[in-house]
């Protein structure tokens, strides 16, 4: 009886002892989990769970002016994943500052604003507005496969990726994360280029370029023809790229791509990520970001890990 009680107390102590904090480019998150941009909305996601439970939230890509995005259909399911060709539809920085950000005001979490643009000037215009806002970090999206000019155009060439990074860093008053595309031959070359250009952190991967055909109709499923491939099916690719980039750069890495459970988080941390983002899983299950956090905590307890650093240290090649 006493033994049981002591054991129970021990478990409780272990629960208390978990220290999930991580520091990403000088910003302390209470745990290493954020949302992937484009899969989170303060209002809609907040209807399902308490946003304050996450280390950070990453909001949907915002541009200088409203973007209409691509025509419908924009969504197609694939084996263990999905394609989207939303094309960064967003209401523009004014609406973001006046409507989305106030929805996040009462929550105890860090806010990462994902920034979209067609040109360096457009990225910088948004960053200037965000400088004066309450957001904690900026994530520069140079990797959206659904936007031709800008977007992925900057993300596939080390020199251009560096140019964007330098321009943004020159004016940004918040830490800058550069989000990379996997649709390149050598992702380490891009990662090194943005690190050299002053990026404070890197997030990867954005979606992989994909396509689907409706064999009964003989037509492409997406109106935009191609779309970004995400979901559990892409996880091995994402993990491999995080692993490669970790060995190429020193700056913090936010890993993402198909994370669906607590052990997936651990895999990314072991591969070299300092934090992770949950994306498509939140479309399958609206509470996925917090469910995955709880699973990760249970995994840490089961494994006897007290800190995120312990998880990373447990990886041996």
């Amino acid at each position: 009886m006493n033994g049981n009680r002591a054991a129970a107390a021990g478990v409780q102590q272990a629960a208390k002892a978990l220290d999930l904090r991580v520091s990403i480019a000088g910003v302390e998150w209470k745990n290493p989990i954020t949302t992937a941009s484009g899969t989170f909305s303060a209002r809609e996601s907040g209807a399902f769970y308490d946003i304050s439970r996450l280390g950070a939230v990453t909001t949907k890509g915002v541009a200088e002016v409203p973007w209409a995005g691509n025509p419908s259909p924009r969504i197609a399911e694939t084996y263990g994943g999905m394609l989207n060709s939303v094309g960064l539809q967003n209401p523009g920085i004014d609406a973001y500052l006046n409507e989305e950000l106030p929805c996040l005001a009462g929550f105890d979490t860090k806010v990462i604003a994902n920034v979209a643009g067609h040109s360096i000037e457009e990225y910088c215009a948004v960053v200037e507005r965000l400088n004066e806002s309450s957001v904690d970090m900026l994530e520069i999206n140079i990797s959206c496969p659904n936007v031709k000019e800008g977007g992925i155009g900057f993300g596939v060439d080390p020199a251009q990726a560096a140019t964007v990074t330098k321009a943004v860093k020159a004016i940004a008053k918040k830490p800058v994360i550069i989000k990379l595309t996997p649709n390149v031959t050598d992702i380490t070359a891009i990662a090194k280029a943005v690190e050299d250009a002053g990026a404070d952190a890197i997030s990867l991967i954005n979606t992989l370029l994909g396509m689907r055909i409706d064999a009964r109709k003989g037509r492409l499923v997406l109106a935009n023809k191609t779309g970004g491939f995400s979901g559990p099916a892409v996880k091995p690719v994402a993990l491999r790229m995080v692993y490669q980039v970790r060995r190429a750069v020193k700056i913090p890495i936010i890993g993402l791509g198909g994370i669906s459970c607590g052990e997936d988080v651990a895999e990314f941390l072991m591969a070299g990520a300092d934090a992770v983002a949950v994306g498509t899983a939140a479309l399958t299950n609206p509470t996925a970001p917090v469910d995955i956090l709880e699973e990760f905590k249970a995994y840490m307890q089961e494994m006897g890990f007290a800190t995120v650093a312990d998880v990373k240290r447990a990886f041996r090649e």
Binding site: G38, S41, E44, S72, R74, M82, N84, V86, L283, P286
Partner: peptide, 28 residues
Amino acid sequence: EERMGCGYGACVGCTVDVKPQDAMQPVR
């Protein structure tokens, strides 16, 4: 009806072009 992603408003996958009476431009 439109192909949906999340089905709860987070992903902006399912849009339709509408023109509210008080708006000048169509909105998605």
